[in-house]
Design a protein around this nucleic acid. Structure first.
Lengths: 157, 157
DNA sequence: TATTGTTATACTCTATAACTATA
DNA sequence: TATAGTTATAGAGTATAACAATA
């Protein structure tokens, strides 16, 4: 019988394995796994995001995201322009150089994604994501809704 | 269709939610979630562990574990005695005070484990742990074997 | 020779609280 | 009043490499 502690430890173990594997995949490119997640979130976003929205989507904190953005901005991978309609906000987006870098990073991390996917049957992958989302949602209702990131649910922004 | 990236992001989201929830459960006790994992690993170990074995069991790094042990030793929660048969090694164990603290921490984190468990049906919990272990094992064969921690496999040490 | 642990070192992520500017 | 972001600050965890002692 899997108890709460067993689940927590297994979840931790799987995440840390993923994180380490990702770190070594990105190390040669001078980028961390978390920075990759940030870049991927911007790339998937389709358009510029506010720092707050970026933090929410990557399960992070606005203040943490800011620190990461400063590093990435210094390297010219992201830009923070004035927000078109809200003078308080910043519109964060990948620069052209950031997009190029992201494509390289995506390729470099292909083996990691293949390993993850290779550990699961197609139906298991679906189940896995569903259970992960349920657990995340239970622990933090602010997180992405259970059905997964449903772009049809909330059209935009 | 869940792709590798979706799985990775979902795994990250679930872990970070668990981590934050745990941090706030432990904050009042002046202990971090990772320190709790260390204490729990010692408590579950049944006997003293070497730093290396401790690091392996908690999916961590010997050098990281040492830094954590220094902090916990200063607070009198763990002891590092000479290893009985290997003069190079240290035998790490909870002190009496550490055991008391751990029992308190265990109680303080009960709600977190209940939330995790409450998000899953009993059979789903089994499946979840199994899939997590498979993914972890694929990403890092050094980690705990798929069937779970099989103490029958390697008797001791 | 290989292994256990230490030391030094550096850096990212994390997060709170007080603050400014704007909605 | 509430929100977006900044700043200052602090600390934990992470990990590498060189090293000593022991197996």
């Amino acid at each position: 019988m899997a108890q709460g502690h067993d689940i927590a430890i297994a979840l931790r173990g799987a995440y840390l394995a993923l994180h380490r594997r990702s770190e070594s995949a990105f190390a040669a490119h001078g980028v961390t796994a978390d920075q990759f997640v940030l870049l991927a979130t911007l790339s998937r976003g389709g358009h510029a995001l506010t720092q707050r929205e970026l933090a929410r989507r990557m399960s992070s904190d606005p203040s943490t995201v800011r620190a990461m953005l400063v590093l990435l901005e210094q390297r010219g991978l992201v830009g923070r322009d004035a927000h078109p309609t809200d003078a308080r906000a910043r519109a964060v987006a990948l620069t052209a150089r950031g997009e190029r870098a992201f494509r390289q990073l995506w390729t470099a991390s292909e083996p990691v994604r293949e390993q993850v996917l290779g550990a699961l049957q197609p139906d298991e992958a679906e189940t896995f994501v569903r259970l992960l989302a349920r657990v995340a949602h239970r622990l933090n209702p602010e997180s992405v809704p259970v059905g997964g990131p449903t772009p049809s649910h909330s059209p935009e922004e």
